[in-house]
């Protein structure tokens, strides 16, 4: 029972990281209707920035995180401006391939700058953990911080999209860009802001991810990126609560599948569950069913 609970907590912790990444995917998809494949690599950049801020400049972890957020936000805006903005009118496949190009670019630039030798990410939480039931149930500080970060981000985003003017503009853009423009909403600025927020979230996710799994290489972001993308689809792409639900479910399923069925097959099981969910509910768990009109 206690091992079960341990796995469950680990699953939620991993799922929280997926959820934070998935939020970035889902927001960008909801508004720009594009799969931003470079998102996973922004995570990697964020983790590297934090790593160097802390290990080379001896900054405290909080400032390292802040540096990562600022730089990733800038990076997100620059990528959007240079690579995606000229393609606003192009087909979604063209944008997809450009995103893949950006992803290759970031990975290879990271490889040149920082080599492919794994960097060992410092443990910010000093191994502090709450031990219960004679040490059978261990909850590390890192786990708690990750889950707390996910909840805070979730609430902040819900308030932001629901209450602020920019948030409302985002929702309007995701529903109908043409109509939003007619209402005087600056669609381009809204899309750029969405990319900025998504990239900032990616930086947070990168730091949390590397705190939990400390080996940092230029391809660190790609697999979590793909999984978070699946999580976003799982929950219903474009929906913020859906990304949270999808992320957490994906994390829990992955940890349980690894613990109780087979470590080698945990990825396969995660994807199998995704397929089954999409077959039963083709728009994801919380996705809106859109009627096709003739």
């Amino acid at each position: 029972m206690l091992t079960f609970l341990n796995h469950f907590i680990n699953g939620i912790s991993l799922g929280s990281i997926y959820a934070i990444i998935a939020l970035g995917y889902t927001m960008v998809y909801g508004i720009a209707k594009m799969l931003n494949f470079a998102h996973g690599d922004v995570i990697m950049v964020g983790a590297y920035v934090c790593f160097f801020a802390v290990s080379a400049f001896n900054l405290p972890p909080v400032l390292g995180l802040l540096a990562a957020i600022v730089l990733c936000t800038l990076l997100g805006i620059i990528i959007e401006r240079l690579a995606y903005k000229p393609l606003r009118q192009a087909t979604s496949l063209a944008v997809l391939i450009t995103a893949i190009g950006v992803s290759y670019f970031l990975q290879n630039a990271a490889q040149l700058l920082w080599t492919s030798n794994p960097k060992i990410f410092p443990d910010f939480f000093g191994g502090i953990a709450i031990k219960m039931f004679d040490g059978q149930l261990i909850i590390t500080l890192g786990t708690l911080v990750t889950i707390a970060a996910c909840i805070i981000i979730m609430i902040a985003l819900t308030v932001f999209t629901g209450q602020t003017k920019m948030g409302k503009a985002m929702r309007a853009c995701s529903e109908d860009k043409g109509a939003a423009q007619l209402m005087g909403i600056n669609v381009n600025a809204t899309i750029s802001t969405t990319f900025a927020i998504g990239s900032a979230l990616a930086a947070v996710a990168g730091v949390l991810l590397c705190s939990a799994y400390p080996s940092l290489v230029p391809t660190t972001g790609s697999m979590p990126g793909i999984k978070a993308f699946t999580a976003a689809v799982f929950g219903g792409i474009g929906s913020i609560p859906g990304a949270l639900l999808g992320g957490i479910l994906l994390g829990v399923i992955e940890i349980f599948a690894g613990a109780y069925i087979s470590t080698q097959l945990s990825n396969a099981i995660v994807f199998l569950v995704l397929i089954i969910v999409l077959l039963v509910k083709p728009t994801g768990l919380l996705g809106k069913q859109i009627r096709e009109k003739v």
Partner: peptide, 28 residues
């Protein structure tokens, strides 16, 4: 059979999932 019932990006993600599943199976 399952994939072609879906549309658009959902179809894309399911083919991605199948690709990963095939990789896991072949690896083992």
């Amino acid at each position: 059979v399952p994939v072609l019932r879906l549309r658009g990006d959902y179809l894309a993600i399911v083919t991605l999932a199948f690709g990963e599943i095939i990789k896991s199976i072949v690896t083992n």
